[in-house]
């Protein structure tokens, strides 16, 4: 967990994550990266100090005494059971807690759907409508079709590694793809690779086959 990663979220993403203004799907990715990346965790802890100090020096508002009494009554009441559901015991070992929670909520274990001979996908429900959030699994040595991106796509490697024309990505790496970024991911030879990815729009296959398939590619934010 202390290894140094090469691919991180942008500083703006960390700022927005710390300030709580980053959208849910992107936050899921950033938090997944933080699970693996100590240097970004420290950065976020430093960023939290900014919000904390801004709050500390803001001019205090008057509080009605009744509010304190209300709080005291509430803390004396037995806690509703719903408070903080325990982290699921199932899930994939080594995965961030929140990802396992999403998997658990959806179906206890990921429901993999085959996309091609080398790739499977398990969609996740996250309660937002901007990005499609899913797990992608590339089998050992699997080659995926070369593609472009029609919208933003963030990927975090959760297990194993994959590579494309520009780099090798290992556990925790955070990859940002935009329209115009054409690549062909390939799974590492030594084992399967699982990534979390959020997509704004479907990918665009650049091969001859894409001419037929592209109109059918859709994303369903959930």
């Amino acid at each position: 967990m202390t290894k140094v990663l090469n691919h991180h979220p942008t500083p703006e993403m960390l700022v927005e994550f710390s300030a709580g203004t980053l959208d849910t799907a992107t936050s899921i990715c950033v938090a997944s990266h933080l699970h693996f990346c100590k240097c970004c965790r420290d950065e976020v802890a430093r960023l939290d100090e900014v919000g904390s100090q801004l709050m500390a020096i803001s001019s205090p508002e008057t509080i009605d005494d009744a509010l304190f009494d209300k709080v005291m009554v509430k803390i004396d009441q037995p806690q509703p059971v719903a408070e903080a559901a325990p982290a699921p015991k199932t899930g994939i070992s080594g995965f961030p807690v929140h990802v396992n929670k999403l998997i658990h909520n959806a179906s206890k274990t990921p429901v993999w759907k085959r996309l091609s001979s080398s790739m499977e996908e398990a969609k996740l429900f996250t309660g937002q409508n901007k990005f499609e959030v899913a797990l992608h699994k590339i089998c050992a040595g699997g080659v995926t079709p070369k593609h472009d991106h029609r919208g933003l796509e963030y990927t975090v490697v959760l297990k194993g590694s994959f590579s494309d024309e520009s780099s090798v990505y290992t556990e925790g790496d955070f990859i940002i793809r935009q329209p115009g970024d054409v690549h062909q991911p390939m799974g590492a030879k030594n084992g399967e690779c699982i990534c979390l990815s959020v997509q704004e729009s479907p990918i665009k296959l650049t091969s001859f086959l894409g001419f037929f398939l592209n109109p059918w590619l859709k994303v369903k934010p959930a």
Partner: peptide, 29 residues
Amino acid sequence: PLENEDFWHEPDEETPVSLLRQKRTEDHV
């Protein structure tokens, strides 16, 4: 399906140095 604090679950193996650094950031900010 998630609460925001779910994103802040990572236990950290803090060292005296990292704690000191965090304290310095706090003071500096």
